[in-house]
Design a protein around this nucleic acid. Structure first.
Lengths: 155, 155
DNA sequence: TCCTAGTGGTTGAACTCTCAACAAGTTACT
DNA sequence: AGTAACTTGTTGAGAGTTCAACCACTAGGA
């Protein structure tokens, strides 16, 4: 796209914003590809599914309500529902009924699911380091943390 | 995942890294969703296809070899091939043969494709601002630029 | 020239995700 | 109690992406 004049109708991006945007975009694409490929190859699951297992593993009783799990993994209800269905087939997650709210469903990490997560974790962490943290010094990591924590959604 | 002891086999993440990682992950998921949804709704194309049109629009003669276009959009050959096939159906991109290397294919942005891009751009830029730049001050944008430019792949 | 290795690009099947529609249950109001 | 509005979660079809296999062409030697 050619850049419109300074008073063009849509507010465009400043030079810094433009550069930040392009670099960010290229990075996140590579990031997604890298993580998905590594996990799919070495652990038989996409990154989104790994996140589901990881969040469940941290929850009390390794159990979370679907809506909370969706929130924790930043995923839509539909996406999560499909994901849990798939993870159930693999025997890594089980669905229970919510004890009081009968609309609700609880996702529970099985022992097999926990084992799969433990097996997948080292390779995944290595991939994260490789693509991100091994290329940044401490100050850059702090900047990154500050910026993205500032971008966390208003609750 | 519970965090293993300081000398556990896989090098884990420091606290800052952990926080940066979680915040970044949540953000990029929301980012992708937000951009895809806006473009799909308002312009009938996913974000990846917008990027294809955008890169072509900046190229000489609005033409790029498939491999270069794949590189510019950080996409795999396969992804790009499917994408261009779809954009061709819409009449937004055309494929030409490469003049000298007969393996090569050239992707050319059509006038209709350019118009579609121009129509889509303001809404897209607004979405980018909304989810990112409107929430950051100038210094944060500079940090962002510095960090992600540092992460650009070694050529 | 011939042959091998490498490059550029496409294809189809399998898988994930989105969107819209839906079912079931809960809440709030009258 | 009755009912309208909202919440929770699922489903199926359509669309995009991945992976592996493949074809066509080029390059670099014997």
């Amino acid at each position: 796209m050619s850049i419109p004049g300074p008073d063009a109708t849509p507010r465009w991006l400043t030079d810094d914003q433009q550069r930040a945007w392009r670099a960010l975009l290229a990075f996140v694409t590579r990031l997604d590809d890298h993580l998905d490929r590594q996990l799919q190859r070495d652990a038989g699951m996409p990154h989104a599914y790994y996140q589901v297992l990881a969040m469940l593993s941290e929850a009390p009783d390794r159990t979370l309500r679907m809506s909370q799990l969706a929130d924790a993994t930043t995923s839509s209800p539909s996406r999560l529902s499909h994901a849990v269905a798939r993870l159930e087939e693999k025997g890594w997650v089980r669905r229970d009924r919510h004890p009081t709210d009968r609309r609700g469903a609880l996702a529970v990490l099985t022992d097999a699911g926990f084992d799969a997560l433990v097996a997948a974790a080292p390779g995944h962490v290595a991939a994260v380091r490789e693509v991100l943290f091994d290329r940044l010094d401490d100050e850059q990591v702090r900047s990154l943390r500050d910026v993205f924590e500032a971008l966390e959604p208003d609750r």
